[in-house]
Design a binder for these strands. Structure first.
Lengths: 334, 334
DNA sequence: TTGAAAGCGGTACCAA
DNA sequence: TTGGTACCGCTTTCAA
């Protein structure tokens, strides 16, 4: 920049102003500077700018697992929004490990990201307090916390559970079971939706009709398989199962097949998340779409808002409406 | 930091040295400083450090699509290695668009990432020249370029094609077709492997037995479906098909089913990449595993090497050996 | 409209 | 072993 200034016979200040479209600069000078910049392919050093402005023009994203399609889609949505505002995305995986997540949060803070988006695997709210001390805005996605008032973007899990269960009821299922996830908000919400749907339709699930599996499991399909076997040992066995997520659902289908049952005729199955490449499955799996890319986009939008707003605005929750996707595994024709 | 210095009655220089484990600092002072740092939860401002050292301790990754499992796995591998070295990962998607990719490269360079890892969608080598001018080390993954001497980490595509085709031959296929990808190195390599396998086994493919589909297509399964229909119109039709990738393979299976054929009995099918959740497919798809996480890890390792080495070292190619994964779609029992 | 000077939060170099 | 000083590349403030 100095070189450029010397060469053009102007000061670095002038150049700096041109860079930022400061208005009191003569058009002549501006043109001249811009022209030479293009020629030299000059781009200002963003680390220097960050040091003085306190803005890195970057936001951090911490997810439990980079490989899950869900988080890939969220990242994609974030990326799309950030690009338009010339922000960058710093990404990191917590590998489903709360300690690692805390470390990564610290790392991001040391890097001075302007905001943080987290799909947390935490139990405690301690790390969030840390972020708040730093006065870095942060937004939770996917999983929320009771007792923590924070910005949140996600899907209305209860509606998801309600939709899925209601659909099974419509298809004529009389004994509907639920394979639920562990102790996280998404699992609780979907379970609640399941319960509400039954109540609304005046149905009662026999005892033992709700089975828990661990969430965030690498081998969710195996868990689903085991859970389904358990359900099928009940008397009477269910004729409809709402599964916590899609991998669990495919595992459940496998178990049903092994038991000699036909899906959906003997037992209808629906998952949640709509992440499987479902068309080519043995039985294409019905699911509830979460529109993850939109979650990401909203989270990014909210992040930018928070960065702009000087005054600390109150936490806001954005709940997206899930959408039922009916495929063969739950469609009882006729 | 200044406050800390004043409070402890030492200079900022001393603190700086403690931070970086500079050795000529008395243990007493060091302890004292470290203790207070913990208490205050102090972390140095990395942007300031970056400005003077010229190192941001971050590397950039540009991929065509964040949602593809392949790139998610690569990112995971990179992340794992970087974390151990306290580097961060700045990620961006080019959305399969060469112009966007160029922009993103510029953005990353302006951010002064210490190295760049790119799964390129480019045709031209121009943007790479730009990176070279910047003297930022860069590493290509997955797709390579003819006529560009650059660091590369990927899978030996020719071996992949050779393995897959050889496997079909072993399974007793006599007329083996290939659905190949577009004009990128991976497609060319796999095609070459296919050809070599036929030659080695003294086989000849009838004309029309190689069909091309576009690569990097969102709807690769549809392309595979169409390509397969085309192959099945031939006389005689193939009894074995090596597909460019897994989505293409699942599409091909669908087409075979629609034509009333049994897989693998009438036609054996194998894909490449091993990215589908293959166990629950209608017919679990055989494939060639690329071990993408390892690709990422190697790329990250190489990046760190390049950053450390003062002298510009010569470009290096790391080729990983692919691994055959046999499933039902190609297994002809008996 | 332009530019000189100060400084963002650290690090490098050398003298004490 | 410690600290003074300059300075990284840019922005901010204020005077010209």
């Amino acid at each position: 920049m100095k070189d450029l200034a010397r060469e053009l016979g102007v000061s670095v200040v002038t150049i700096s102003k041109v860079l930022r479209n400061h208005r009191d600069i003569s058009t002549a000078t501006r043109e001249r500077v811009l022209k030479r910049m293009k020629e030299l392919n000059y781009r200002p050093n963003l680390t220097a700018r960050a040091l003085i402005t306190g803005r890195t023009q970057s936001i951090g994203l911490i997810v439990p697992d980079l490989v899950h399609t869900f988080f890939g889609q969220v990242a994609k949505g974030i990326n799309r929004v950030l690009r338009q505002h010339r922000y960058s995305l710093v990404i990191s995986s917590s590998e489903e490990d709360a300690d690692l997540e805390r470390q990564e949060i610290d790392e991001m803070l040391a890097r001075r990201v302007d905001a943080l988006i987290i799909a947390s695997t935490q139990w405690s709210v301690e790390s969030f307090r840390r972020i708040e001390e730093h006065e870095t805005p942060y937004i939770l996605v996917d999983r929320k916390f009771v007792g923590l008032s924070a910005n949140f973007v996600g899907v209305d899990d209860e509606v998801a559970g309600f939709l899925a269960t209601g659909h099974l009821i419509e298809q004529g299922c009389k004994r509907i079971a639920h394979i639920r996830g562990g102790e996280i908000s998404t699992a609780a919400g979907r379970h609640e939706g399941y319960r509400r749907a039954l109540v609304v339709h005046g149905m009662v699930a026999p005892s033992g009709y709700v089975v828990s599996v661990k969430s965030g499991d690498d081998a969710a399909d195996v868990s689903g398989y085991e859970a389904m076997k358990e359900l099928l040992r009940l008397n009477p066995p269910p004729d409809g199962v709402f599964c916590y997520n899609d991998p669990t659902g495919t595992g459940a289908i496998r178990a049903a097949f092994e038991a000699g049952l036909r899906v959906p005729r003997d037992v209808a199955i629906i998952g949640c998340g709509n992440v499987r490449f479902s068309e080519d499955l043995r039985v294409p799996l019905s699911s509830v779409d979460q529109d993850c890319t939109t979650i990401g986009a909203h989270a990014a939008g909210r992040a930018l808002e928070l960065i702009e707003s000087k005054t600390p605005s109150r936490p806001e929750t954005i709940l997206l409406k899930p959408r039922l996707v009916v495929r063969q595994s739950s469609r009882r024709t006729g």
